[in-house]
Design a protein around this nucleic acid. Structure first.
Lengths: 204, 204, 204, 204
DNA sequence: TATGAATGAGATTTCATTCAT
DNA sequence: CATGAATGAAATCTCATTCAT
C-alpha cells in the first residue's frame, strides 16, 4: 500500500474505534487489523496511542479554537457603553459555531465525550479557560461603565454552561437545522443572564 | 475478622481506590490487599466490581433521590397561578441539597465524576430524567394557567444545567459554607430563566 | 497444584532460563510455560521480573554477604603490629569462600555474569565497596603502625582483583577440589601484594 | 548526501547510541534518525546491527591488537637469562598502551563494557587468549633458564587481571595524565607477581 | 543512494474473575 | 468466612529486518 492510503485508513478506523469505545478502551490491535495492518504499522505512522488520537482530532480542534478566537477579536471591538442586548443579535454567531460543530460531528463528539485518558481529556476545561479569560476582560469593561461589579463565580459557571450547551446539543440533536433553531433561544437566555447575573448590583 | 468488619473495611478501601482512580482503573487486588484481604473475599461479599461500587454508593444515592422527590411532592402542591418568584425564595432548598451533597462528599463525587465504566455511569442522566419528568408536569400546569407554552428543549437543557451546577460546585468549592453562598444566586438565576425562557410566549 | 509446588517450579525454571539467556533476554513467557503455567501466575507469586530473579538469587546472596562480614569481624581483631604473612595462613578462609561459591554454583554465576539489566546488575560493585571500606580501615591501622602510607587506588584495584579472582575461578574451573587448590596461591599472592603495594613507602 | 558523508554520520551516531545504551538496547531507528536517515539506509551501508557496530569499532580494535603484538615481538627478543626486574622498567610500555586507549577512549569503552549481545562480546577473552599464548611461551623460556616451573592457572589469572587493570582504569579515571601515573605501580606490581608467582619453585 | 512502508514476533505487565478447599 | 492459586485475555509498545521503488 502506498501514498497515504494506509495512514488515512488507520485514521479512519481509529475514529470509528475511538467513537465506539472511548480513548481508554479503544484497542490499537483492532484499529490496526481493521485497517488490514499490524500494530507495528501504527507506530510507524504515529508516535503512540495519543499521537493517533491527535491525528484524528487535531485539525478540527484547532479550527474550532481559531473560530472562537476570531469571534472574540470582533466582540472585543464592541463598545460596552452602548451595547444593548436585542433578542437574536447573536444568532449568526450561534449558527457559525453550530455549523462548525456539525461539519465535524464525529471529531467534536470524540473530544467532548470520549477523550478520557488521552492527552485531550481536559480539552473542554482548556476551552472554558480561554473563554473565561476573554469574558472576564469584557465583563470588567462592562462593569466599569455601568458602575456595577462582576460575580466571578457566576462568570465561571455561565461560561461552563455555555460550553455545555453546545456539547449537550451535539449529544441530543443530530439534525443540524433543528440544532440551530434549538440553540438560538439558549444563547439569548445566556446573554440575558450575563447582563443580569454576571454583572450584578454592588449592594448584593 | 467478623462478617461486618471485613465487609465494611472493603467498602471503605474501595471508596478510597475508586475516588483515586475512577471505576475503570481501580484495582480490586489493591482494594482487597489494602483491606488486609484477598481478591477472593471481594467476591464473597459482593457480586463483582460493580456490586462493590454499588455498596459504596447506593445508600447515599438513594437518599439523594428521595430528597429530590420529597422536594417535588411539596412543590407540586404549590399553586402556579399565584406563584411569584422572589429573590432568595429557594435558598432553603438549595441549602438542603448542598448540605446533603457535602455530607456525602466522597460518594457524590464518585457518582458524578468517577463512575465511568460502571453501571452508574449514567446516573446523572437518570437524575436529570427524573427531574425533567417532574419539571415538565409543573411547567405544563404553569403554562396552562398563564396561557403560555413550554419550550421543551430549554426545559431539558436547564434541568441539565441545574444538575451540573451542583456537580460543578462540588468540584470547585470544598468549603461547605462558601458553597451555600455561591449556589444561591445560581439558583435564583435558574428560576428566572425557568419563568422567562422555559415558559415562553406563544408567538415565539 | 498446591502448596509451594508451582512457586518452586517457577523458580527452578527461572534459574534455568536466566542462566541460559541472562536477565534481559530471559522470557517470562517461556519460564511460565516451562513450569506449566501462564505468565499471569508469575505475577501472582512475584512482583515482577526482578522479583522473580530475586527469588532465585536472594538467599544465596545474603548468605554470601554474611560470610564475608563474619570473616571481617574476625580479621579486625588481629593486631596489625604483630601480623606477619605466612604462606598458606589464609587457606581456610579461601576454602570457606570457595566452598560457599560452589555450594551455590548456579546462583553465584547468575549474580556475577547474568544479572545485567536486573536490580542486581551492580552487585559486584556493592561487594567491592563493602570490602574496600573494611580493607581501607585495616590498611590505615597497618600503615600507622609501620609508618608507611596507603595507596588508595591500588587498594581499590586489588579489592577488585580479589573479587574477580573468585568470579574467574567459577568461570574456568567447575571442579570444586581443583578450584580450592587453584585459589590458594592466588590468595597468597594477593596478600603479598597487599603488604607490599597497597602499603607503600612514604617517599614513593 | 555523498556516499561517505552518510556512512560516516551513521557511524558517528551509532557510536553515541551504543555508548549510551549498549549494543543490545541501542536502537537502529534512533541511530538512523539521529543521522537524518532511515533504518533502510543502515542496511544499505552495513550488513546488520553487528556490522554497524563493527564499523564503529574495528579500526581501533585491530590497531590495539597490533600494538600488543608489536610489543611482544620486542619482548620475545629479550634474554630471560639476564633479565632483572627494575622498578619502572615497563613504564614506557604502560604509557604507550594507556595513550592508545585514551586516544580511542569511546571505542575502547564500547568494546570493554558495551558489547554484550554483539559479535564482539567476547573480545576481551580473545585479547586475553592472545596475550596468554605469548606469555606462556615467554614463561616457559624463563622457567627453563631458572630451573623453575610455570603455574599455568596463575598465568591465566594474571593475564586476565592485567587486561582488567586497563579496563578498570578507563572506567575510573578520565584524565589521561593521572591514568598514566596510576597504572605504573600496578604494572610494576604485576611484573613482581609474574616473576614470583607465575614462575614458581618446583617443590610447591 | 536511499526511502518509506510494513511485518511479525516479541516483550512485560495488569486485570477481573473463578473455584476448590 | 475467606484464602490461595491460577487463568486467559488483553493491553501498549519496541525492534531488527526486508524489500519494492
Amino acid at each position: 500500500m502506498s501514498d497515504n492510503e494506509s495512514r488515512e485508513k488507520l485514521i479512519q478506523c481509529a475514529r470509528r474505534e475511538f467513537t465506539e469505545k472511548g480513548f481508554d478502551k479503544a484497542s490499537l490491535r483492532k484499529i490496526a487489523s481493521d485497517a488490514g495492518l499490524t500494530t507495528g504499522a501504527v507506530y510507524f505512522f504515529f508516535k503512540d496511542k495519543n499521537g493517533l488520537f491527535g491525528a484524528v482530532v487535531d485539525e478540527a480542534l484547532s479550527g474550532f479554537m481559531q473560530l472562537l478566537k476570531k469571534h472574540f477579536a470582533e466582540e472585543a471591538d464592541e463598545d460596552p457603553a452602548t451595547y444593548v442586548h436585542v433578542k437574536g443579535d447573536h444568532d449568526p454567531l450561534a449558527e457559525m459555531i453550530v455549523n462548525y460543530l456539525y461539519d465535524n460531528y464525529d471529531v467534536m463528539m470524540l473530544l467532548f465525550d470520549k477523550a478520557h485518558g488521552s492527552r485531550y481529556e481536559n480539552v473542554i476545561d482548556t476551552i472554558i479557560e480561554m473563554l473565561e479569560t476573554q469574558y472576564s476582560a469584557l465583563a470588567k469593561k462592562y462593569a466599569e461603565v455601568t458602575g456595577k461589579r462582576v460575580n466571578e463565580y457566576m462568570l465561571h459557571y455561565i461560561t461552563h454552561m455555555q460550553v455545555d450547551a453546545f456539547e449537550h446539543l451535539l449529544n441530543h440533536e443530530t439534525d443540524r437545522e433543528k440544532a440551530v433553531e434549538k440553540i438560538k433561544p439558549v444563547i439569548d437566555m445566556m446573554i440575558t443572564v450575563w447582563v443580569g447575573y454576571v454583572i450584578e448590583d454592588r449592594d448584593e
